[in-house]
């Protein structure tokens, strides 16, 4: 199980209609991700990083090719199945607008479990555990507007991990953070990866993030330009 393939794309192409023409956002992408990976997509703006994450996360569908995520064929998946896949197995962390502003940190983390109809006592326990992971138990009652950028991202991580997903997709999670906070959340994610075997895929421009990666995939104009794996532990630990 340790090295089983969770995600694989086969000639994945994504086009967005642009008037008469179409923008090719992803062009014949073939990639595989194994359980426990800590991988990053890098590349210039517009190279297709977000598009790839969205398709892996079943928020979008391929124009051509096949994408298999945890045994589900994304190109054929229906709304309900996609929602279930996201709800059970995939955690998202975005650059901004991660949290629901009307709810407290605790409630934000609780939300995915409510959708799963997990009984209250179990739910509460899981939420506290997640908040502990990110070191924010004291901010449980705060609303997003009362949290700093770094704290917000940590709540977003807690919410993504509370359901113990096998895959975490993080789209430029540090773009709005200073160095201190960036390192802080990367260390949290690295620990998650190590202790829970959660697979991480980032998209990033950020050198600080790149230091932590054990695999770096460079996209250029929708194509995979390089795919490097580092066997030795690099930064951080």
């Amino acid at each position: 199980m340790q090295n089983s393939i969770l995600i694989s794309t086969n000639n994945l192409t994504k086009r967005f209609p642009m008037g008469e023409d179409a923008v090719v956002a992803l062009d014949q992408v073939n990639l595989q991700f194994r359980k426990g990976e800590f991988a990053g997509l890098v590349g210039p703006s517009g190279s297709g990083k977000t598009t790839l994450l969205n398709i892996i996360g079943s928020l979008d569908v391929p124009s051509e090719g096949e994408v298999l995520v945890l045994g589900e064929a994304i190109e054929k998946i229906g709304h309900k199945a996609a929602a279930r896949l996201r709800n059970r197995h995939i955690g998202f962390i975005f650059q901004t607008f991660n949290l629901l502003p009307v709810y407290t940190a605790f409630e934000n983390v609780e939300f995915p479990l409510l959708l799963q109809r997990i009984p209250e006592s179990q739910r509460k326990k899981a939420v506290w555990e997640s908040l502990e992971w990110v070191g924010l138990t004291d901010k449980a009652k705060s609303r997003p507007s009362q949290l700093s950028g770094g704290q917000s991202q940590r709540v977003a991580i807690a919410r993504a991990m509370v359901k113990r997903p096998s895959i975490m997709l993080a789209d430029e999670p540090t773009a709005n953070l200073d160095a201190q906070n960036s390192h802080n959340i990367l260390q949290i994610m690295e620990r998650l990866n190590r202790e829970l075997q959660t697979t991480f895929i980032f998209s990033t421009h950020d050198e600080k993030v790149i230091q932590y990666l054990r695999r770096k995939i460079t996209l250029d104009d929708g194509r995979v330009a390089s795919d490097e794996t580092f066997t030795t532990e690099r930064a951080g630990s």
Binding site: K80, A83, R84, N87, I90, L115
Partner: peptide, 16 residues
């Protein structure tokens, strides 16, 4: 829309 996007990403079904 923002809230809707986040809720969909969390895995809420569109119908729900």
């Amino acid at each position: 829309y923002g809230e809707i996007g986040v809720r969909l990403a969390i895995g809420e079904d569109r119908g729900h």
